[in-house]
Every structure is written in structure tokens, then in C-alpha cells.
């Protein structure tokens, strides 16, 4: 088993190196550089050359690459080209915001999706089912930023209930924190809920149609117990998988929603840095996001070895 884990860790490290290398060279092959965008029209060619030299952008690519790699190994993430702020500080500022939006978004999404899915499955082809299905399709079809703008207009501008701009850290109070995050979280949570609802409904319908469900009913189990004790447990397995995969949707939605609500999270940081060709920031942000996915996969693989002997031995036998 240890050999297997070691192999998986080595594999993960290799993937991360591949991501880092691809991002590094990929970014530099995109036309346009950061210097002219930073200095704007007024810069003389001398000023452009001077800044390029100062930023080390005039050195050969392989040299820049090796420098960056060695800095990465000692966890020196560098500084933003545009504002000279430390990249680590920018990330530390941004990550809690994105995580907060994603967390509340997922919680809200699940709180909507599971009851809605159950409703759809148990009242199949009734009005409630059609309503839930329609809502889910609308949810899947509307991108998060559009939902965000609608929410801002309705709850911010018309009703004036919630702020439409900015972020307040939780240290300044849970209520203001939640107030500022509610609309963006709903905006990313709704499309997420829509996908999960569809999966919950079909999975539950499938389970309810299984033979052992009929047996349980025949044995005199109440329909409530049948649903919540027996059917839900089995139906939830694919839902959990989908809920996990759909997390990517939440993070993706967060990129545009952060821009709409003026929150400097990882998504907005990434988009800005790409537009400005702010190489150090783009590289580290992409590395961080892919690192999270690689790490989650690694974790799942390792957990599987603990619960599924076939993986534990099969890997070595093969």
C-alpha cells in the first residue's frame, strides 16, 4: 500500500510540474507583454526597455523558467508585476473570499437541490415535479454572472435589502460578512443546485423502482421510512459524486460573480492578471487552483485504498 501511495504522490508532483511548465510557457507565447500595458501610451521605448530589464523580462526564457522553478521550490512566489505586491499576500487576501462564496453557495445549493429532487421524484409528473424541473432547466441555462446581475438589481437596487458591492471579512462580524456574500453565493449556488436537483431526482426515481424497494413496501415499511431510510441512502451515492464534480462549476461561476459584485477573490485576481499579462500572479493562481484539484484527487485515491482492497492490491498486481 505504501508503495502505491508513494507512486500516487509522485504522480501528483509530476502533474503539478507539468501544469507549472505549461502555464509558464503558454503565457509567454500569448502575444503582448505586461510592460507596454503598464506604461501605456506615454512611455518612451527607453522606459519600456528599462522596465523590462528591471522585471527581468529581457532574459532568455529558459533562464526565467529555471529562476521561477527554484523560487517555487523554496516557496518564494514573487511579486505582482503591476503593483509590486507580494503574490503570496494577494493570494492570502483573495482565497478566503472565494472559499466563502463557494462554501455558502454549495450549502445553499444543496439545501435547495436535495428537497427539490426528492419532491420531483416522489411527485413524479405532478405539478410540483414540472415546476422543479422547469426551475432546474432555467438554473442550468443561466450563467452565474447573469443570475448575479439580476439578483443585484432585484435585492440591491429595487428592494434595497442587501449590498451589491464588496466584501467584509468575517472578523468584522458574521452578519455583515453574510450580507455581502449572500447574493454572490446565491448566484453561484443556483446553477449548482440545478445540476444536483436533476441528479437527485433521477437517482431517487431509479432507486425507488428497484425490486428491494417493492419488497420493503410489501414487508409493511411505511412509505416515509422507505424513502428516507432505504431509498435516500442509496440514491445519494451518485449525487455526492456529482455534487463533488459540480464544485468546478461553483469555482468557475465564482470568477464572473466576483467581477459582478466587486469582490477581489481568486477568480477576479486570475482574470485581471491574465488581461494584464501579470505573469507571476497568473502562474501562481493557476497553480493553486489546479493544486487543489490534484490534491483532492490524491486524497480520494488514498482513501479508496483504505476502503477498497482491490485498488490496494490490484495496482501492484497489474
Amino acid at each position: 500500500m505504501w508503495r502505491y501511495i508513494a507512486k500516487r504522490v509522485a504522480h501528483a508532483v509530476f502533474v503539478m510540474w507539468l501544469v507549472a511548465t505549461t502555464v509558464f510557457f503558454g503565457l509567454r507565447f500569448v502575444p503582448g507583454g505586461p510592460v507596454r500595458a503598464m506604461l501605456g501610451q506615454e512611455a518612451t521605448p527607453e522606459a519600456v526597455a528599462a522596465l523590462r530589464a528591471e522585471l527581468g523580462l529581457d532574459r532568455p526564457l529558459p533562464v526565467q523558467y529555471i529562476d521561477w522553478m527554484t523560487d517555487l521550490v523554496v516557496l518564494d512566489l514573487g511579486r505582482s508585476i503591476t503593483s509590486s505586491t507580494k503574490v503570496s499576500a494577494l493570494i492570502a487576501e483573495a482565497a478566503p473570499k472565494t472559499l466563502s462564496i463557494a462554501f455558502i453557495g454549495v450549502m445553499l445549493g444543496l439545501a435547495i437541490a436535495i428537497p427539490a429532487g426528492v419532491l420531483g421524484a416522489t411527485r413524479r409528473n405532478e405539478l410540483a415535479d414540472y415546476a422543479a424541473t422547469l426551475a432546474a432547466f432555467v438554473g442550468i441555462s443561466m450563467p452565474a454572472f447573469f443570475v448575479g446581475i439580476l439578483l443585484a438589481i432585484v435585492f440591491g437596487v429595487w428592494l434595497g435589502w442587501l449590498p451589491v458591492l464588496g466584501y467584509v471579512p468575517i472578523s468584522e462580524g458574521v452578519v455583515p460578512w453574510l450580507e455581502h456574500l449572500l447574493l454572490p453565493s446565491i448566484a453561484v449556488g443556483l446553477p449548482y443546485a440545478a445540476g444536483v436537483t436533476r441528479m437527485m431526482r433521477s437517482s431517487l426515481i431509479e432507486t425507488l423502482d428497484e425490486g428491494y424497494m417493492r419488497t420493503a413496501l410489501a414487508k409493511g415499511v411505511s412509505s416515509r421510512t422507505q424513502l428516507y431510510k432505504h431509498a435516500m441512502q442509496n440514491a445519494l451515492i451518485p449525487v455526492v459524486t456529482i455534487a463533488g464534480i459540480q464544485l468546478a462549476l461553483v469555482l468557475g461561476g465564482s470568477v464572473t460573480v466576483e467581477i459582478v459584485f466587486g469582490i477581489q477573490g481568486l477568480g477576479r485576481l486570475l482574470v485581471n492578471s491574465i488581461l494584464e499579462r501579470n505573469y507571476p500572479v497568473t502562474q501562481v493562481t493557476i497553480l493553486l487552483i489546479s493544486g487543489v484539484f490534484v490534491f483532492m484527487n490524491l486524497l480520494v485515491d488514498i482513501v479508496y485504498t483504505a476502503i477498497d482492497p482491490r485498488i490496494r492490491y490490484g495496482g501492484e498486481a497489474a
Partner: peptide, 12 residues
Amino acid sequence: TPIPEAAQVVNA
């Protein structure tokens, strides 16, 4: 507060 999204400037 920097606001990059045009519609949000007026909403805010």
C-alpha cells in the same frame, strides 16, 4: 472600491 463591471457601477 474598484468596480470593473459597468452595470454594477450604476447598481451600486
